[in-house]
Amino acid sequence: MKPLLVLVVAAAAMPLLLPGEFYLAIATQVLVYGLFAVSVNLIAGYCGMVSLGHAAFLGISGYAFALLSVGAGWPIWAATTAALGLTSLTGAMFGLVALRTSGLSFLMITLALGQIVWGIAFRYVDLTNGENGISLPRPDGVLLHGTGLYYLCLAVTAGCMLFVTVLTRSPLGAAMQGVRDQPRRMSTLGYDVWAIRYVSYVLSALLAAASGILYMLTFRFISPHALSLTVSSEAVLMVIAGGLGTTFGPLLGAALVVLLKNVASAYTDRWPTLLGLIFLFIIVVVPEGLLPGARRLLGALKARVVAPDNIGANLTRASRIEGARQ
C-alpha cells in the first residue's frame, strides 16, 4: 500500500515538474493507458486468463459515453454511469461465452469477440459514424486545462489501482491467484473456479470501461481504431513488459509503450513494425517483465565478468549446451 501512496504523491507533483503542456498530455495518456493495462492485468495477471479483446470494453464505454453525452445530451455523470453499466453488462454477456473455455481457446474467443465489436463500430455507420468517428466538443470547467484533466485521470487510475491492490489481498484475490496457478486443486478444494474467473472478468471489464471514459475525456475523439486488435495487444504488451500480476507493472509498461510511441512518431510512421519488434524482444529476451528481466540479465553479466573460470558458471554453461543439444 505504501509504494502506491509514494507514487501518488510523486505523480501529484508531476504538473509542477514537467516543462510544458505537451509532457503533461503524455503523462495523462500514460495514466489512461495505465488504467486500461491494469484492467487487463486483473484478468491476465491475477487470474491467468489472457484476453486479446479488451479494447472492445474500452471502446464500448467510450462510444456509449460520447453518444449519450453529445448525441442524447445527457449530463456527464449520467452518461458515465450508463457507459460503465452498459460495458459491465457486455462483459457479463461476453464472459458467459468466453469462459466456456480457458487457455488458448479463451484467448482466441476474446480476440474474435473483440473483432466483432470492432466490426460493429466500423460498419454500423448510422450509430457510430463509421470510420470518421465521433468527437466531443471542447470541455468546460475544471477539464478545460490539462492540469485539471491530469488530476482527474490520476485520481481515477490511483483509485482503481488501490481497488485492485485491496482486491488481490482479499480472500477473493487469493482464490483468483489459486485458480491461476492450480485450477484443478482449487476445484477439488471446493472453490467454484468458473465463478471466480467470471467475477474477475466482469470486474476487469468494468475497469476497462473506466479507462474508456478517461480515454474520451482525454482525446475527445473515438473511432473504430480504439477498438482494434492493435489496442488490445498493446495492453497485453504493457502488462507483460511491466510484469504479469504485479501492482505497478501495468503502469510501468504503459509508460514505456506511450513514450516509445511518441518518440517513434517523430522519426517513423512504422509504429506497427516497431510494436511487433518490441513484442518479439520482450517475449524472447525478458519474458518475465522488464525489471526482473533486466535484473537477471545484469546478474548473469556480472557473474560472467567477475568469475569467468568459476566452476559454477562453467556448469551452467555446460548444462545450457546440453539443453541446446536436446
Binding site: G103, P272, T273, L275, G276
Partner: peptide, 23 residues
C-alpha cells in the same frame, strides 16, 4: 525457441502479424 511456452508463442506470432502487415 519458445517451445513449451504457449502464451509466448501466441504473442510472438501476434507481434509477427503486426510486422508482416506493416511491411
Amino acid at each position: 525457441r519458445l517451445a513449451g511456452r504457449e502464451l509466448a508463442q501466441v504473442l510472438g506470432t501476434l507481434g509477427l502479424a503486426f510486422i508482416i502487415a506493416d511491411q
